[in-house]
Amino acid sequence: MEITWEDGAQSTYSAEQLRWACPCAECRGEGGSPGRLSRVKTLSDAELRVQDVTLVGQYALQIAFESGHATGLYTFSMLRRLGTTDRR
């Protein structure tokens, strides 16, 4: 996935990187209990393939993976920090 930002900079992401960065409560954990991503070392192929990306308002992206996991809302500020950004 590629994002071109308002200022012209471009960020690129692999599906794998996005899946491991999923910010949802199930993956990250909530209320002090650890999330799923801290308990597993590997994810199946279907979990690592992006199926669909939807814009949420104008602050985030919802990424659906082929496994059906789609609860993560990736805010633009988080994505900007996460990607390998190449300034133009």
Binding site: E2, T4, E6, V50, V53, L55, F76
Partner: peptide, 10 residues
């Protein structure tokens, strides 16, 4: 006139 980021998925 404000722009939003452009997203491309390959």
């Amino acid at each position: 006139f404000r722009q939003l980021p452009v997203i491309n998925v390959h």
